[in-house]
């Protein structure tokens, strides 16, 4: 009995060892793909940086995209960011190719799922960063326009716009990832519809007189004469 048990345990360990051995080519393939991806990524990054510096020499000054990136909280230069994005894109593509080259099996299936999710994560992150940038730009514009027009709700209004844009883009990013899609859509419809209805009721019925008085005051203020000629 002991000899049978010993034999079976030995067989199990041999199979485990064989399985580990069979994974080694896959690991080597993945390492080779990763290495290729890193090299191609570095090459792409160098080419992009070169192109950017050439463009900078021809048209000096800060590009418009820098403002959007800064607004989104990304303080690095656009050329560095583009370099990093191109590098990581090359690595992800190379990994995908590497995983596809593996022998069919559980490992390949798991890795394929992980790798196929990476582009979605990248796109969602891009969407979210774009939303952050646009939200900051919109908040500034609304804040300035409201302050210069003398509106009392300048800061809360600007924050509201900022929040709406960030939430919209965050929802789009989550939707792209496939996270809680149906809940997101329902929540969005309820919140958006409710907000519009609440504003319509509040401003149209509850504060009709206030709205009228406010608009009249604003129109008069536009014509306000200070006696100072600026031009």
């Amino acid at each position: 009995m002991w000899s049978t048990l010993e034999h079976q345990i030995g067989e199990a360990f041999r199979r485990l060892f064989d399985t580990f051995l069979s994974v080694i080519p896959a690991v080597l393939v993945l390492l080779a793909a990763l290495l290729t991806g890193v090299m191609v990524g570095m090459l792409l990054k160098a080419v992009l940086m070169g192109l950017f510096s050439l463009r900078k020499k021809r048209t000096p000054g800060t590009p418009a995209t820098a403002g959007l990136l800064r607004a989104a909280g990304l303080t690095s230069h656009p050329e560095r960011l583009a370099g990093s994005v191109s590098f990581w894109t090359a690595v992800v593509v190379a990994l995908s190719v590497g995983v596809n080259a593996l022998e069919p099996g559980a490992l390949r299936t798991i890795l394929l799922e992980v790798v196929s999710f990476l582009p979605k994560i990248l796109t969602s992150a891009f969407l979210f960063v774009l939303g952050l940038g646009l939200a900051v730009l919109a908040r500034r514009s609304v804040l300035l326009a409201a302050v210069n027009a003398g509106l009392p709700w300048a800061r809360p209004g600007a924050r509201g716009i900022h929040a709406v844009i960030v939430i919209s883009f965050a929802a789009a990013a989550l939707d792209h990832l496939g996270v809680g899609r149906s809940i997101l859509i329902a929540a969005f419809c309820i919140a958006g519809g409710g907000l519009v209805l609440a504003l319509a009721l509040a401003f149209g019925l509850g504060a009709r007189d206030l709205a009228k008085a406010y608009l009249e005051k604003r129109l008069r203020a536009e014509e306000e004469e200070t006696g100072i000629r600026h031009v």
Binding site: L144, V147, T226, I228
Partner: peptide, 23 residues
């Protein structure tokens, strides 16, 4: 000289001082 009214200018400045610091 024409009489001048500084209140609209002062009000615009105060409003901005309260709200525009982030910009």
């Amino acid at each position: 000289p024409d009489p001048v009214r500084l209140e609209p200018l002062a009000a615009a400045f105060r409003r901005a001082a309260a709200d525009l610091e982030p910009i």
